[in-house]
Design a protein around this nucleic acid. Sequence first.
RNA 1: UGGGGAGUAGCCAAGUGGUAAGGCAGCGGGUUUUGGUUCCGCUAUACGCAGGUUCGAUUCCUGCCUCCCCAGCCA
Length: 569
Amino acid sequence: MTKNTQEDTSKPRDFIRTIIDHDLETGKYDGRVQTRFPPEPNGYLHIGHAKAICLSFGIAEEYPGGKCNLRFDDTNPAKEEDEYVRSIIEDVSWLGFSWEDRLFYASDYFEQMLEYAFQLIKKGKAYVCDLSAAEVVEYRGTLTEPGKESPYRNRSIEENLDLFQRMCDGEFPDGSRTLRAKIDMAHPNLNMRDPVMYRILHARHHRAGDKWCVYPMYDWAHGLEDSIERITHSLCTLEFEAHRPLYDWFLIELGVYRPQQIEFARLNLSYTIMSKRKLLQLVEEKVVDGWDDPRMPTISGLRRRGYTPESIRDFCDRIGIAKRESTVDVALLEHCLREDLNKRANRVMAVLDPLKVVITNYPEGKIEMMEAENNPEDPSAGKREIPFTREIYVERTDFREEAPRKYFRLAPGKEVRLKHAYYITCQEVIRDETGEITELHCTYDPKSRGGWTDDGRKVRGTLHWVSATEGIPAEIRLFDKLFLKENPGEVAEGENFLSNINPDSLKILDNCIVEPALGDAKHGVPYQFLRTGYFTLDKKFSKPGKPVFNRSVSLRDSWAKLEKKLSGS
RNA sequence: UGGGGAGUAGCCAAGUGGUAAGGCAGCGGGUUUUGGUUCCGCUAUACGCAGGUUCGAUUCCUGCCUCCCCAGCCA
């Protein structure tokens, strides 16, 4: 046994887990592992956040005694809303993670942060600056030139104390002053050129109301939040790498507990945008029907689309964690969903584009109940009965007047199997005055009940079907990629990502017919519609008597591939 | 340009001073009452480039190239 089973079943050792393993060995943080997921409640969570959630919560689950806090980084009242905190709470718990009693808000630490700020002022490491926003930019210098020191940089500690107190008391208008850290205006890292710690903002906070009129900046607040919560490993994305020196500086100057920040590459997905700002734009401009539109990469969109928490967590495990910027193929996400749903979704029949078939030698008015297994992958899923009648619907695309090579579906004179029912042979094609095919007249073989005969006859094609008289009408929504380009951000001069929108990303089929069992389909339950894909009831548009189903993902279609190849050559 | 990061197949991603896992995608085939699933097999001369150290480097050193991040009183 060269590799023990524990190693085999544990997650791969990415560089972050390797660091934590090492910290545990050396006794750093006394063997504790405590992470946090710190979303700003200014939008809905998306699949990129799922990666971060699975990382931080996943690590907490893996290490003995590990914990992960859910903390709202609500330091900017201008952009944040309570609706977002509710959705975030729902999404994280839906993914299957628990913060137990550790639900925190940065705004709950504001008092403490102010005390720390006064400490820094007393230490001569922070000052009140009267420069305007534009002037601050001007004084900051550029990438290659050092900045200039603010004329207010050397105010006395007493004056700073007084001024900052009055800022907090609301004596000054928005934007008139800031509290800044006194570091180094010539520092090669621009983040260290006397960064702003507090700005004046007379804004109503979604949680704290009108209690505050100064709000802390991210760099100042975040490390303090982590420190207060005794976080050991503060995991964030790459763009914060250049902020780490500042994260450390504040905590060291304050002499308080210091977690270590570790950065990893954020998730990019092909054909997908991940920016909250752009997602918000899609919502506001009604390109989609909400944050939870099934085409959105948001957790709520994926949920409405029919994704399972398991499939998303599996996806996050598979993409790995590294510092290299990368774009994951959206096909991997779909693969994870198919793999999960294949095991658990019950099979049912639904016809998306109905073509009527009359079985001329089948008795009128007769209803025969055919037995069908619910899931060949899972015998415990049991069986159900499906009504078979003289008139049924099959998929219009399952009939060709002229069958191409290797096509073994229905065509004039050809015999196919109706899944769980009978063999039928197409005898006649009926058309309307415009020449469009309106129905097919077929005959069935009574000896093939159940879809099988013992005479050795070979029937390659198997079609799904629904009784024309017993089936129920439904609307079915098919989705395609929301963007036409692999990288939606890639646009011509003067255009923006909206010009890459796929105009055909939503296809509504409103005269579908589904088997009766779907009459009481439940929200959140996945179904495999035989041969067409995995579907789930839409929670927004379904109405009693007219269910609406969303296609979560199609089934692999090797015939489509073959046909493309045949016609191409 | 100053600072900070990153470069392993089409896309992710392990890994080691001894000559490179796995997954997705792709391709071929067996099974199949879903052209699904599953199973078997295959492919791509993948370690950014150039030197150096070494018996031997993707792994160590040097130089270079490319890409990403930072000049919000956003996070």
